[in-house]
Nucleic acid binder design. Structure first.
Length: 658
DNA sequence: CCCGCTGTGATTTTT
DNA sequence: TCACAGCGGG
């Protein structure tokens, strides 16, 4: 297979849906090693920790474990952390910088808005953080024009970047931005890292943004660097968060005269499913031509169902999969219900519960909770970087220790005036002088606590997990955590998740002293603490958004709401991203292995109102040869009048325009 | 500290 | 419609 053996020079592997993308990359790595490449010079970059983990596992299966361990398989962000932990000083940051995740960033933005905004000005922290993030992913690290400082958002942006620097902190976007910056501006640094990696591989290349492309370009050495990217332009669905399909469409511009290999054999779906997918995606302009085929046989036609409203749609889908399950005995895990927006899952959930069918909702945003875990991280971060005000503010009153809001506000003011951080302000004699004896005592105790544990944590031969446990205990955090719970069970659960974390810290076989703890915290900061929720692990039918479904596959798939305004989403018309919506449907269709059902409604309830709906314009693009029109009324096994059946059939024909 | 009132806004989501 | 944030009162 050429995709595996062409190891020299730039290679572009166009890997269509279900063509064995990950398998190809891992086989390449194994092939490289078998042919004498030094494993330590191989770098494979992915987007998610999950993908990196899977790849690492598969490499370990193919080559001996000592060699596998030398290969660098990493996400873009953790690769950047690695670069920055070594070389960020060139940019004027200290090496012990703290990494802020999105919620840390939002809380900093919130603070700044209250500090900067006039009485009548309003700005949502969430929206502002989003704006800043978008800008940074375009490579912009400050508001562009002079006016920008005058708008609230611009002022917050400028202030935010300055604050991060003062706090010796970087956010997720900075990781990319600063890593690229240091490689761009310091040739010695660039040469060092480029020399390390002789073979570069990038997964899901269609999802890269400008910064990520630049990172790869700067790491790639020589006229014909060994850069192999794998991706599928037809599955580019993250444009809205900065991904540039252009990167894959114009690969030759960045890496001239590449070997281009198209993987077109699909190992997943039936011919009808692939045929349908092909007929749809053909309507996209500007794509790398490819035609997927499979040897899996024709299979069933794709069923297109028109439901009267979203409630009936849900009842139908759930009823249909229930029936199928009873008839064939396949397991619940083989089913997935896909939808454009999270809100759509509700009706499905209700219908599932009514029938007692087990299900799991993937995604959503349940990862902002786990308050106690974030608190523990804040405690530990503070030991590594006392200048980290966001962490300090998070824990200064957990537990309440007599340092009230007023005192904190004063300390903040003092720290701003002195151009320093909160920790320094709290330790400052002049600041203390202005306080009551009681407050002074409370602050003194708090600062002493931090200093004492900083010394203990980084003492030679310190047992990090044990020191951390004592820290959380003696600070009163654990007791406060338990106290704040409503039930003893909840208290146990939360305390246990803290101890799990500490146990993990104990097991973490890192270096002694600061580095070991920092590696551990870096890992925690970069991995969202959402539980492992792979479709295999849970029980039940998978309910999932179209976006989150990318990369997964299921024997039986239902795609809901193929209606104008929902898929394509109404926003996409104004944004000019209809192509991306089409790719989204393409991704959805290609998730199915055996049986696929598409549905749409004539009426949908939104914000309490019944809205008339039109079928998605995408339906007209589908090749009818692969479709079967399901008579909704009949399928529901309700006594339907012939008239109703006829009219619904006529409507469907009308919709499809043939 | 907690409860209930009011106002608001409502794609997609990983690191 | 409904969920959630922010606020004021008990």
């Amino acid at each position: 297979m050429r995709a595996v053996r062409q190891t020299e020079g730039p290679v572009l592997i166009l890997a269509g849906a279900g063509t064995g993308k990950t398998r190809t990359i891992t086989a390449r790595i194994a092939y490289l090693i078998a042919n004498g490449a030094d494993p330590a010079t191989i770098l494979a970059v992915t987007f998610t920790n999950k993908a990196a983990g899977e790849m690492r596992e598969r490499v370990a299966d193919m080559v001996n474990s000592a060699e596998a361990a030398l290969v660098t398989v990493s996400t873009f962000h953790s690769l950047c952390v690695r670069i920055l932990r070594q070389d960020i000083e060139k940019l004027g940051y200290k090496r012990n910088f703290t990494i802020y995740d999105q919620s840390d960033a939002i809380s900093l933005v919130r603070q700044l808005i209250t500090r900067v905004a006039a009485k009548d000005e309003k700005l949502e922290p969430n929206a502002a953080q989003n704006l800043i993030s978008r800008a940074k992913n375009l490579g912009v690290d400050a508001p562009t024009d002079e006016n920008a400082e005058q708008t609230l958002a611009g002022a917050v942006f400028a202030r935010y970047q300055r604050e991060l620097r003062r706090l010796n902190a970087v956010d997720f976007d900075d990781l990319l931005l600063l890593a690229v910056k240091v490689l761009r501006e310091h040739e010695d640094v660039r040469t060092k890292w480029a020399a390390r990696f002789r073979y570069l591989m990038v997964d899901e290349f269609q999802d890269t943004n400008g910064l990520q492309l630049e990172l790869i370009r700067r790491l790639a050495t020589g006229d014909r660097p060994n850069v192999c990217v794998v991706g599928d332009d037809d599955q580019s669905i993250y444009g809205w968060r900065g991904a540039e399909v252009r990167n894959i469409l114009e690969f030759e511009r960045h890496f001239p005269e590449p070997t281009v290999i198209a993987l077109e054999q699909n190992y997943r779906s039936t011919d009808h499913i692939l045929g349908l997918a092909n007929s749809l995606i053909r309507h996209n302009p500007r794509r790398r031509a490819k035609q997927l085929w499979s040897g899996r046989g024709a299979g069933e036609k794709i069923r297109l169902v028109a439901a009267p409203d979203d409630r009936e749609e849900a009842i139908y889908v759930v009823g249909d999969l229930h029936r199928l399950k009873l008839e064939t005995g396949i397991s619940w895990e083989d089913f997935a219900v896909l939808f454009r927006t999270n809100a759509q899952s509700r009706l499905i959930e209700e219908a599932m519960r009514e029938r007692g069918i087990p299900y799991r909702v993937v995604g959503g945003q349940s990862f902002f909770d786990r308050r106690e875990v974030k608190d523990v991280i804040a405690y530990l971060r503070l030991l590594l970087n006392p200048a980290d005000d966001v962490s300090l503010l998070r824990i200064i009153n957990a537990p309440p220790r007599g340092i009230g809001e007023t005192t904190v506000a004063r300390a903040l003011e003092f720290s701003i005036k002195r151009q320093t951080n909160l920790h320094a302000a709290l330790s400052d004699a002049e600041f203390a002088a202005a306080l009551s004896a009681k407050t002074r005592g409370a602050i003194g105790e708090f600062v002493a606590l931090l200093d004492r544990f900083e010394a203990r944590m980084f003492a030679p031969l310190a047992d990090r997990a044990e020191v951390a446990r004592a820290f959380l205990d003696e600070s009163g955090f654990i007791a406060d955590l338990r106290r704040s719970c409503r039930t003893p069970e909840e208290a146990d659960r939360r305390e246990e998740s803290v101890f799990d974390l500490l146990q993990d810290l104990g097991r973490h076989s890192g270096a002694a002293g600061e580095k070991g703890l920092r590696d551990f915290i870096d890992r925690l900061s970069l991995e969202s603490d959402r539980e492992e929720e792979t479709p295999e692990s849970g029980h039940g039918v998978t309910l999932i958004t179209l976006h989150a479904a990318k990369g997964l596959e299921f024997p039986h798939v239902y795609v809901l709401g193929l209606e104008e305004g929902l898929l394509p989403h109404e926003r996409s018309r104004a944004d000019g991203t209809i192509d991306e919506e089409r790719r989204l449907l393409y991704v959805a269709i290609t998730r199915a292995k055996q049986r696929l059902t598409l549905t749409h409604c004539s009426t949908r309830f939104r914000y309490g109102q019944a809205l008339p709906r039109q079928a998605s314009s995408f339906l007209r693009e589908l090749d009818v040869a692969h479709l079967e029109f399901v008579d909704f009324a009949k399928e529901l096994a309700k006594p339907a009048t012939e008239q109703a059946a006829k009219s619904s059939f006529a409507r469907m024909r009308e919709i499809l325009g043939n």
